[in-house]
Structures are given as C-alpha cells and as structure tokens.
C-alpha cells in the first residue's frame, strides 16, 4: 500500500479565481525518494502544504480530491496529528526556527505531543544524532550557518517520528557546500532510516541521481512522473524549461543514450559509461 496517495487533487486559494493545483494524482511507496520540480509558480509549495494538511485545514480555499498520508485522510485529521506522520521542511530556515536553543527547538514537537519527559529527552538525543548535530545542542539558532539551521529544522521534525519528510526547496538559501551537506543528510536518512522523502529542488544536477522517481509539476498539473533518467531525458521536460543537468544535455546531444540504451545523470556515470563502452 502506498504511504502517500494524492487522488485527483485540485485546489484554489481563498480569494483566488485560478486553481493552483489541477487534478494531481500521485502515489508514493514507503521508503521512496521523490524529486519534485517545475518552474516557479507551478504549485510546488502548495502541493507541499497539502501533504501535511496545512491545506486545507489552516488555509481554507476550495479543496477537491483526496490526500492520504500514512493512512490518514488529511481533511479528516488536524495538522498536529498529521505532523506525526509527515514532516514539512521550509525554504528559509530563518522562519522555521523560533526557539532560543537548538535543544529546545528539537524538543518543541514532542513536548507539544505531551510525551513523557524521558521520551522527549530520548527523541531529542536520537534526532540530533541522526542528523549529526549533537554538538550544536546548546547553540542559539542565530549563531548557526544556514546549512546547520536547516539540519536543526530536519531534526526538529524527526523528533516527531514522521515516516515521510516533505522538503520545500530546503537548499535555496544555502551556499553550495552547505546545500550538499544537507542533501547528503537527506540521502542518509532515506537509505539508513527508510524515511520517505519528497524533495522540491531546482538544482537537478545535485539531486537527480539521489531520487528513485522524479515528478514535474507545470502550471498546477503533474505532467511527468517516472524514473529520473526517463523524465530528464524526455523531450517534454526540455520543453517545460526546467534546468536539465549538463550531463544529460551532453549525452543527448551526442545520442549516447540512444546508442547505449543508458541514461547517465552524473558526470562519473557518464565517464564510466564511455570507458566501458570504449573497450
């Protein structure tokens, strides 16, 4: 059974006349890593908010269809309940950290759930360790770099033991090295702890190879879903105007994908492919 199921989802914000999402269908298996991309304003952020029930529970608006996460129909459960199944990481870490120390930040979720104190403490320890930031516990979010802040945000969500993490352009405001470090953390969580990932990202060259599947949203519709290599090598993806990774462009320009039947996403896989093929 899929862990996330979106069924003919359409959504219009209150006061708006144009729907932001139109008939979106997607199911995600447990443990999958989904890369969601698409041009600005295509509805990615809105879709993220639908996944943890902020839409429609807090936003109102016209909501049609169904979103089921970990067995919960989002319209039938309050956000705080869904939060224990889906964690949502935002674009700007500055606005998602509101406590004065990292430890309190991570404790905030489990405290809200009124878990026994020992359990809260245990979850704080575990989450900090999972993200590799135990050494930052006494810092104030103000003192941290953007990458560290984003890791704190991730740890703060993990403390509620969600099976699914949804990340809305978590690296947009980070420098490349911090971005890479955050992405590696996500990959590790997915591979080692089996957390289902739904990652919104523009910088496809950095993430395409991490994902099991790639989905492209365009003007509120899910237009392409499939293996990253199938999606990124398709002519439709090129036409929509997402930033196709250079390796894909080189491979396509030379027709290597057609000749070998392989679709590399990284420089090293293309180089390996050429090496093997040459001999």
């Amino acid at each position: 059974m899929p862990i996330v199921e979106i069924r003919s989802l359409s959504y219009t914000y209150p006061g708006s006349t144009k729907p932001t999402l139109t008939n979106v269908n997607l199911s995600v298996e447990e443990g999958e890593f989904i890369l969601l991309t698409g041009p600005s304003g295509c509805g990615k952020t809105t879709l993220c908010r639908c996944l943890n029930g902020l839409i429609p529970n807090s936003y109102g608006g016209e909501f049609n269809g169904q979103v089921i996460v970990d067995g919960l129909v989002t319209t039938e459960h309050p956000v705080y309940e869904i939060a224990q199944h889906v964690g949502l990481v935002f674009q700007n870490p500055e606005n998602e950290l509101f406590c004065t120390s990292v430890e309190r930040e991570v404790a905030f979720g489990p405290e809200n759930l009124a878990l026994p104190r020992e359990e809260v403490r245990k979850r704080v320890e575990e989450s900090l360790a999972m993200v590799g930031i135990s050494h930052l516990r006494d810092k104030s979010p103000e003192e941290l770099s953007g990458g560290e802040q984003q890791k704190v945000a991730i740890a703060a969500l993990l403390a509620m033991k969600p099976k699914i993490l949804v990340l809305d352009e978590p690296t947009a405001n980070l420098d490349p090295a911090s971005a890479q470090s955050v992405l590696n953390t996500l990959l590790k969580l997915n591979e080692e702890s089996g957390v289902t990932m739904i990652l919104v990202e523009h910088r496809l060259e950095m993430v395409a190879h991490m994902a099991h599947r790639c989905a492209i949203l365009n003007e509120g519709r899910l237009v392409l879903v499939g293996k990253p290599e199938d999606v990124l090598y398709s002519d439709e993806a090129e036409a929509i105007g997402i930033g196709i990774p250079k390796v894909v462009q080189v491979t396509k320009a030379l027709g290597i994908n057609k000749m070998t039947g392989k679709c590399p996403l990284t420089s090293w896989s293309l180089a390996d492919l050429l090496r093997v093929w040459k001999n």
Binding site: V79, F108, L113, R117
Partner: peptide, 18 residues
C-alpha cells in the same frame, strides 16, 4: 505559524517540558 503547526503546536492541552 505554518512551521509551528507543522510541529504539532496545540496538540495537547498540557504539553511536556524538557
């Protein structure tokens, strides 16, 4: 506010304190 809700703010009447 979105971030707080996403971390189960308001889930229980009496929350724990670490």
């Amino acid at each position: 506010a979105d971030a707080m809700e996403s971390r189960a703010f308001g889930a229980a009447k009496r929350r724990t304190s670490l």
